[in-house]
Protein backbone atom coordinates (compact mmCIF):
# COMPACT_ATOMS: atom_id res chain seq x y z
CA UNK A 1 0.00 0.00 0.00
CA UNK A 2 2.89 2.36 0.85
CA UNK A 3 6.25 1.81 -0.78
CA UNK A 4 8.96 4.37 0.00
CA UNK A 5 12.09 4.20 -2.13
CA UNK A 6 15.25 6.11 -1.21
CA UNK A 7 13.24 9.18 -0.28
CA UNK A 8 15.43 12.20 0.52
CA UNK A 9 14.87 15.83 1.35
CA UNK A 10 17.57 18.45 1.54
CA UNK A 11 17.12 22.05 2.71
CA UNK A 12 20.19 23.78 1.35
CA UNK A 13 23.18 22.02 2.90
CA UNK A 14 21.07 20.27 5.53
CA UNK A 15 19.70 16.79 4.84
CA UNK A 16 16.41 16.31 6.69
CA UNK A 17 15.57 12.89 5.24
CA UNK A 18 18.30 10.67 3.87
CA UNK A 19 17.43 7.85 1.44
CA UNK A 20 14.58 6.48 3.52
CA UNK A 21 13.06 3.21 2.26
CA UNK A 22 10.28 1.05 3.72
CA UNK A 23 7.11 -0.81 2.71
CA UNK A 24 3.75 -0.89 4.51
CA UNK A 25 1.11 -3.44 3.45
CA UNK A 26 -2.63 -2.72 3.62
CA UNK A 27 -4.28 -2.96 7.03
CA UNK A 28 -1.14 -2.33 9.05
CA UNK A 29 -0.66 0.31 11.75
CA UNK A 30 2.94 1.46 11.71
CA UNK A 31 4.42 3.61 14.46
CA UNK A 32 6.75 6.19 12.94
CA UNK A 33 9.18 7.23 15.65
CA UNK A 34 12.17 9.46 16.04
CA UNK A 35 13.54 12.19 18.32
CA UNK A 36 12.82 15.87 17.63
CA UNK A 37 14.31 16.92 14.30
CA UNK A 38 14.68 13.31 13.09
CA UNK A 39 12.76 14.07 9.88
CA UNK A 40 9.37 12.52 10.74
CA UNK A 41 7.21 15.53 9.86
CA UNK A 42 9.26 16.19 6.71
CA UNK A 43 8.72 12.57 5.63
CA UNK A 44 4.98 12.81 6.30
CA UNK A 45 4.77 16.08 4.37
CA UNK A 46 6.53 14.44 1.43
CA UNK A 47 4.29 11.37 1.56
CA UNK A 48 1.17 13.57 1.60
CA UNK A 49 2.40 15.51 -1.44
CA UNK A 50 2.85 18.74 0.49
CA UNK A 51 6.61 18.85 0.05
CA UNK A 52 8.52 17.79 -3.03
CA UNK A 53 11.24 15.18 -2.40
CA UNK A 54 14.81 16.12 -3.39
CA UNK A 55 15.34 12.56 -4.64
CA UNK A 56 13.72 9.15 -4.43
CA UNK A 57 10.00 8.55 -4.58
CA UNK A 58 7.11 6.68 -3.00
CA UNK A 59 4.23 4.69 -4.30
CA UNK A 60 0.96 4.99 -2.40
CA UNK A 61 -2.12 2.94 -3.35
CA UNK A 62 -0.45 2.22 -6.69
CA UNK A 63 0.17 5.88 -7.50
CA UNK A 64 3.62 7.36 -7.88
CA UNK A 65 4.17 10.33 -5.59
CA UNK A 66 6.19 12.27 -8.15
CA UNK A 67 4.17 11.53 -11.28
CA UNK A 68 0.64 11.30 -9.82
CA UNK A 69 0.62 13.55 -6.76
CA UNK A 70 -3.08 14.43 -7.11
CA UNK A 71 -4.12 10.77 -7.10
CA UNK A 72 -1.91 10.20 -4.06
CA UNK A 73 -3.57 13.11 -2.26
CA UNK A 74 -7.00 11.75 -3.15
CA UNK A 75 -6.15 8.46 -1.42
CA UNK A 76 -4.39 9.86 1.61
CA UNK A 77 -5.68 11.45 4.81
CA UNK A 78 -3.41 13.58 7.00
CA UNK A 79 -3.85 14.76 10.57
CA UNK A 80 -1.04 17.28 11.11
CA UNK A 81 0.61 17.90 14.45
CA UNK A 82 -0.04 21.65 14.34
CA UNK A 83 -3.82 21.18 14.48
CA UNK A 84 -4.12 24.48 12.62
CA UNK A 85 -7.62 25.40 11.45
CA UNK A 86 -9.28 28.48 10.02
CA UNK A 87 -10.42 29.89 13.33
CA UNK A 88 -12.96 32.30 11.91
CA UNK A 89 -15.07 29.46 10.50
CA UNK A 90 -17.46 27.33 12.52
CA UNK A 91 -16.57 23.65 12.82
CA UNK A 92 -19.26 22.70 10.33
CA UNK A 93 -18.17 25.33 7.82
CA UNK A 94 -14.59 24.10 8.10
CA UNK A 95 -15.55 20.46 7.54
CA UNK A 96 -17.82 21.36 4.63
CA UNK A 97 -14.94 23.27 3.08
CA UNK A 98 -12.66 20.24 3.47
CA UNK A 99 -15.33 18.02 1.89
CA UNK A 100 -15.59 20.40 -1.05
CA UNK A 101 -11.80 20.29 -1.57
CA UNK A 102 -12.08 16.51 -1.99
CA UNK A 103 -15.12 16.86 -4.26
CA UNK A 104 -17.51 15.22 -1.77
CA UNK A 105 -21.09 16.35 -2.45
CA UNK A 106 -22.80 18.15 0.43
CA UNK A 107 -25.51 15.48 0.75
CA UNK A 108 -22.77 12.85 1.25
CA UNK A 109 -20.58 15.01 3.47
CA UNK A 110 -23.23 16.02 5.99
CA UNK A 111 -24.23 12.54 7.22
CA UNK A 112 -20.56 11.61 7.38
CA UNK A 113 -19.81 14.70 9.47
CA UNK A 114 -22.71 13.79 11.76
CA UNK A 115 -21.23 10.31 12.22
CA UNK A 116 -17.93 11.78 13.35
CA UNK A 117 -19.69 14.27 15.63
CA UNK A 118 -21.58 11.45 17.29
CA UNK A 119 -18.40 9.38 17.64
CA UNK A 120 -16.46 12.25 19.22
CA UNK A 121 -19.37 13.32 21.47
CA UNK A 122 -19.46 16.78 19.95
CA UNK A 123 -22.75 18.69 20.05
CA UNK A 124 -24.02 19.60 16.58
CA UNK A 125 -24.99 23.03 17.94
CA UNK A 126 -21.38 23.60 18.97
CA UNK A 127 -20.26 22.74 15.48
CA UNK A 128 -22.71 25.12 13.85
CA UNK A 129 -22.71 27.96 16.38
CA UNK A 130 -19.15 28.35 17.63
CA UNK A 131 -16.22 29.63 15.65
CA UNK A 132 -13.21 27.28 15.77
CA UNK A 133 -11.20 29.98 17.55
CA UNK A 134 -13.43 29.42 20.57
CA UNK A 135 -12.98 25.63 20.68
CA UNK A 136 -10.91 23.94 23.35
CA UNK A 137 -7.72 22.22 22.20
CA UNK A 138 -9.36 18.80 22.43
CA UNK A 139 -12.42 19.85 20.46
CA UNK A 140 -10.25 21.38 17.79
CA UNK A 141 -8.20 18.18 17.59
CA UNK A 142 -11.42 16.20 17.06
CA UNK A 143 -12.35 18.48 14.17
CA UNK A 144 -8.87 18.09 12.66
CA UNK A 145 -9.08 14.27 12.93
CA UNK A 146 -12.53 14.38 11.31
CA UNK A 147 -11.12 16.54 8.52
CA UNK A 148 -8.37 13.97 7.91
CA UNK A 149 -10.77 11.03 7.67
CA UNK A 150 -13.78 12.68 6.05
CA UNK A 151 -13.00 11.51 2.50
CA UNK A 152 -12.59 7.91 3.72
CA UNK A 153 -8.97 7.52 2.56
CA UNK A 154 -7.36 4.05 2.36
CA UNK A 155 -4.09 5.45 3.78
CA UNK A 156 -3.95 7.78 6.81
CA UNK A 157 -0.98 9.62 8.28
CA UNK A 158 -1.33 10.76 11.89
CA UNK A 159 1.16 13.19 13.42
CA UNK A 160 0.71 13.28 17.21
CA UNK A 161 -3.06 12.73 16.94
CA UNK A 162 -3.71 12.36 20.69
CA UNK A 163 -2.34 15.81 21.55
CA UNK A 164 -5.13 17.60 23.42
CA UNK A 165 -7.58 14.69 23.56
CA UNK A 166 -8.94 13.72 26.98
CA UNK A 167 -8.47 10.16 28.29
CA UNK A 168 -11.85 8.92 27.07
CA UNK A 169 -11.47 10.45 23.62
CA UNK A 170 -7.95 9.00 23.38
CA UNK A 171 -9.24 5.52 24.23
CA UNK A 172 -11.99 5.89 21.63
CA UNK A 173 -9.53 7.13 19.04
CA UNK A 174 -7.14 4.21 19.60
CA UNK A 175 -10.04 1.78 19.18
CA UNK A 176 -11.10 3.63 16.04
CA UNK A 177 -7.73 3.34 14.29
CA UNK A 178 -7.45 -0.35 15.20
CA UNK A 179 -10.88 -0.95 13.68
CA UNK A 180 -9.96 1.07 10.61
CA UNK A 181 -6.82 -1.04 10.17
CA UNK A 182 -8.80 -4.27 10.52
CA UNK A 183 -11.01 -3.04 7.71
CA UNK A 184 -7.99 -2.62 5.48
CA UNK A 185 -6.84 0.95 6.01
CA UNK A 186 -3.11 1.57 6.23
CA UNK A 187 -2.01 3.86 9.04
CA UNK A 188 1.29 5.58 9.65
CA UNK A 189 1.27 6.86 13.20
CA UNK A 190 3.89 9.36 14.30
CA UNK A 191 4.08 10.02 18.03
CA UNK A 192 6.37 10.59 20.99
CA UNK A 193 4.06 8.66 23.34
CA UNK A 194 5.86 5.35 23.06
CA UNK A 195 3.64 3.23 25.29
CA UNK A 196 0.63 4.09 23.11
CA UNK A 197 2.64 3.19 19.99
CA UNK A 198 3.69 -0.07 21.62
CA UNK A 199 0.08 -1.00 22.36
CA UNK A 200 -1.56 0.19 19.14
CA UNK A 201 0.96 -0.45 16.37
CA UNK A 202 1.71 -3.72 14.59
CA UNK A 203 5.12 -2.45 13.66
CA UNK A 204 7.44 0.47 14.38
CA UNK A 205 9.90 2.37 12.21
CA UNK A 206 12.50 4.39 14.11
CA UNK A 207 14.43 7.10 12.29
CA UNK A 208 17.09 9.55 13.44
CA UNK A 209 18.88 12.29 11.50
CA UNK A 210 16.77 11.36 8.48
CA UNK A 211 18.00 7.74 8.38
CA UNK A 212 16.21 4.51 9.13
CA UNK A 213 17.48 2.96 12.36
CA UNK A 214 15.09 0.05 13.02
CA UNK A 215 12.02 -1.50 11.43
CA UNK A 216 9.95 -4.36 12.87
CA UNK A 217 7.25 -5.49 15.26
CA UNK A 218 7.59 -3.74 18.68
CA UNK A 219 7.75 -6.97 20.71
CA UNK A 220 10.27 -8.56 18.38
CA UNK A 221 12.48 -5.46 18.29
CA UNK A 222 12.45 -5.14 22.08
CA UNK A 223 13.28 -8.82 22.50
CA UNK A 224 16.02 -8.85 19.83
CA UNK A 225 17.77 -5.87 21.39
CA UNK A 226 17.19 -6.95 25.01
CA UNK A 227 15.84 -3.52 25.87
CA UNK A 228 12.86 -4.53 28.03
CA UNK A 229 10.57 -1.80 26.72
CA UNK A 230 10.17 0.15 23.50
CA UNK A 231 10.99 3.33 25.41
CA UNK A 232 14.31 1.90 26.58
CA UNK A 233 15.11 0.70 23.06
CA UNK A 234 14.24 4.11 21.63
CA UNK A 235 16.43 6.03 24.05
CA UNK A 236 19.34 3.64 23.52
CA UNK A 237 19.08 4.02 19.75
CA UNK A 238 18.68 7.76 19.66
CA UNK A 239 21.33 8.70 22.18
CA UNK A 240 19.01 9.34 25.12
CA UNK A 241 20.34 6.53 27.34
CA UNK A 242 22.45 8.80 29.48
CA UNK A 243 19.53 11.18 30.03
CA UNK A 244 18.44 9.54 33.30
CA UNK A 245 21.90 9.97 34.76
CA UNK A 246 22.04 13.59 33.56
CA UNK A 247 18.57 14.26 34.98
CA UNK A 248 19.55 12.86 38.36
CA UNK A 249 22.68 15.02 38.46
CA UNK A 250 20.77 18.09 37.35
CA UNK A 251 18.07 17.52 40.00
CA UNK A 252 20.78 17.55 42.66
CA UNK A 253 21.56 21.17 41.78
CA UNK A 254 18.11 22.12 43.14
CA UNK A 255 18.78 20.58 46.57
CA UNK A 256 19.27 23.11 49.38
Amino acid sequence: MISVQKLSKRFGAQTAVNELSFEVPAGQIVGFLGPNGAGKSTTLKMLTGMLEPSSGTANICGFDLRRQPIEVKRHVGFVPESGAVFESLTGLEYLEMIAALYGIPKQVAEPRIRQFIAFFDLAFDTLTEKLLGAYSKGMRRKVVITAGLLHNPPVVFFDEPLDGLDANAAVGFKALIQTLAREGKTILYSSHILDVVERVCDRVIIIDKGRLLLDGAPDALVAENGAGTLERLFTELTGGAELEQRAAEFAKTFLP
Binding site: M50, I70, E71, K73, E87, S88, L101, Y102
Partner: peptide, 16 residues
Amino acid sequence: SQHWQASDVFRAAPLV
Protein backbone atom coordinates in the same frame (compact mmCIF):
# COMPACT_ATOMS: atom_id res chain seq x y z
CA SER B 1 -3.77 35.70 7.87
CA GLN B 2 -2.82 34.68 11.37
CA HIS B 3 -4.33 31.29 10.55
CA TRP B 4 -2.07 30.72 7.52
CA GLN B 5 -0.88 27.33 8.82
CA ALA B 6 -4.38 25.97 8.29
CA SER B 7 -3.90 26.54 4.55
CA ASP B 8 -1.80 23.34 4.55
CA VAL B 9 -5.14 21.64 3.84
CA PHE B 10 -5.06 23.21 0.38
CA ARG B 11 -1.74 21.52 -0.39
CA ALA B 12 -2.83 18.21 1.11
CA ALA B 13 -6.07 18.27 -0.96
CA PRO B 14 -6.09 16.73 -4.46
CA LEU B 15 -5.74 20.07 -6.26
CA VAL B 16 -3.33 20.36 -9.18
